[in-house]
Simulated assay, not measured.
Amino acid sequence: MSVVGYQYAVDNLCPACTIGRLRANGIKVARGRDHEEAVRRAAEQVGIDFSDEHTYDSSSFPKAITRQMARTELIELPNGEPGEIADERCDRCGKWLRLGEKSPTKAGLTRWVRDEHELPQALAREIAETLREWGLSHPAFIDESNVKEAAAQHPHAWLSYRFVDYPSSTETKPIHEPDDTDDECLYCGQAWQAQQHQTA
């Protein structure tokens, strides 16, 4: 099982922050080694049986977090829906343990939402902020349904596309009022009637 981080006292830490915390606590950790080997050797120096986590407490020495163990419960999803991310962040530096990187800034997430889903800047900004509030702060954990659900939380212009002279042409043009009231908005996935009720 691949180790992606460590539980040390009350914190979940990435490998680099774990080694930094060990050194800050006066425990020597070899440089230039794989983090698993380095932590294991550090454990031997202080008389810890690192292979048996039941023989020591995380307050005295780090315990391994494997890829399978890294989980973040999402508690802010709309309508109280249960949710989970198969990763968790380092409590010191903010990196996701499995991804090995931080979430983008607010501006970075807004750009990703705008470009990936072809949204107006103002709506993308509101969607990005809502996604962050839900705990979905990294593109790796965001799918199209999340973006549309977030879009439905904010007033916006209805948009769809209509074929021009179909089937003789595959050209499309944007439309802001539907041919049918059941037509869905590309931004939020809501039908015309539902969106008009939501924005009224």
Rank of each mutant, 00 (worst) to 15 (best):
residue 1 M to A: 14
residue 3 V to T: 14
residue 4 V to K: 05
residue 5 G to T: 10
residue 7 Q to Y: 08
residue 9 A to T: 14
residue 12 N to F: 05
residue 13 L to A: 11
residue 13 L to G: 11
residue 14 C to I: 08
residue 14 C to D: 09
residue 14 C to F: 06
residue 16 A to Y: 07
residue 16 A to F: 11
residue 18 T to N: 08
residue 19 I to K: 04
residue 19 I to C: 08
residue 22 L to C: 07
residue 22 L to Y: 08
residue 22 L to H: 05
residue 23 R to Q: 10
residue 24 A to L: 07
residue 25 N to G: 07
residue 26 G to D: 08
residue 27 I to Q: 12
residue 28 K to D: 15
residue 29 V to R: 01
residue 34 D to V: 09
residue 38 A to G: 12
residue 41 R to D: 15
residue 41 R to F: 14
residue 43 A to Q: 03
residue 43 A to I: 07
residue 48 I to N: 06
residue 49 D to K: 02
residue 54 H to D: 12
residue 54 H to Y: 10
residue 56 Y to M: 11
residue 56 Y to A: 13
residue 60 S to R: 13
residue 60 S to C: 14
residue 60 S to I: 15
residue 61 F to S: 04
residue 63 K to N: 04
residue 63 K to D: 02
residue 63 K to T: 01
residue 64 A to Y: 03
residue 64 A to W: 03
residue 66 T to Q: 03
residue 66 T to N: 03
residue 74 L to T: 03
residue 76 E to V: 02
residue 77 L to A: 13
residue 78 P to R: 06
residue 79 N to H: 06
residue 79 N to G: 05
residue 80 G to M: 01
residue 80 G to W: 01
residue 82 P to A: 07
residue 86 A to W: 13
residue 87 D to H: 02
residue 87 D to M: 02
residue 87 D to R: 01
residue 89 R to Y: 09
residue 89 R to S: 13
residue 92 R to S: 14
residue 92 R to E: 15
residue 92 R to T: 14
residue 92 R to A: 14
residue 93 C to P: 10
residue 93 C to M: 08
residue 94 G to P: 03
residue 96 W to L: 09
residue 97 L to V: 00
residue 97 L to R: 02
residue 99 L to Q: 01
residue 100 G to H: 06
residue 100 G to Q: 06
residue 104 P to W: 12
residue 104 P to Y: 13
residue 104 P to F: 13
residue 104 P to T: 08
residue 106 K to R: 15
residue 106 K to L: 15
residue 107 A to E: 09
residue 110 T to H: 05
residue 112 W to C: 00
residue 113 V to W: 03
residue 118 E to A: 01
residue 119 L to T: 01
residue 120 P to V: 14
residue 124 A to Y: 03
residue 125 R to Q: 12
residue 126 E to W: 13
residue 129 E to L: 08
residue 130 T to L: 01
residue 131 L to C: 01
residue 136 L to T: 00
residue 138 H to A: 02
residue 139 P to Y: 04
residue 140 A to G: 10
residue 141 F to A: 07
residue 141 F to G: 07
residue 141 F to H: 05
residue 142 I to W: 02
residue 143 D to W: 00
residue 144 E to C: 06
residue 145 S to V: 09
residue 147 V to E: 00
residue 148 K to M: 05
residue 150 A to H: 11
residue 152 A to S: 04
residue 153 Q to Y: 08
residue 154 H to P: 01
residue 154 H to A: 01
residue 155 P to I: 00
residue 157 A to Q: 09
residue 157 A to F: 04
residue 159 L to Y: 05
residue 159 L to T: 10
residue 159 L to S: 11
residue 159 L to F: 05
residue 160 S to F: 04
residue 160 S to C: 08
residue 161 Y to R: 15
residue 163 F to P: 07
residue 163 F to N: 13
residue 164 V to K: 15
residue 165 D to H: 10
residue 166 Y to A: 15
residue 168 S to T: 13
residue 169 S to Q: 12
residue 173 K to S: 05
residue 176 H to Q: 06
residue 176 H to L: 04
residue 177 E to S: 11
residue 177 E to H: 10
residue 179 D to Y: 12
residue 184 E to G: 08
residue 184 E to H: 07
residue 187 Y to F: 04
residue 187 Y to A: 00
residue 188 C to G: 01
residue 189 G to D: 05
residue 191 A to I: 08
residue 192 W to R: 00
residue 192 W to V: 01
residue 193 Q to Y: 09
residue 194 A to V: 13
residue 195 Q to D: 14
residue 195 Q to L: 12
residue 196 Q to Y: 10
residue 197 H to L: 12
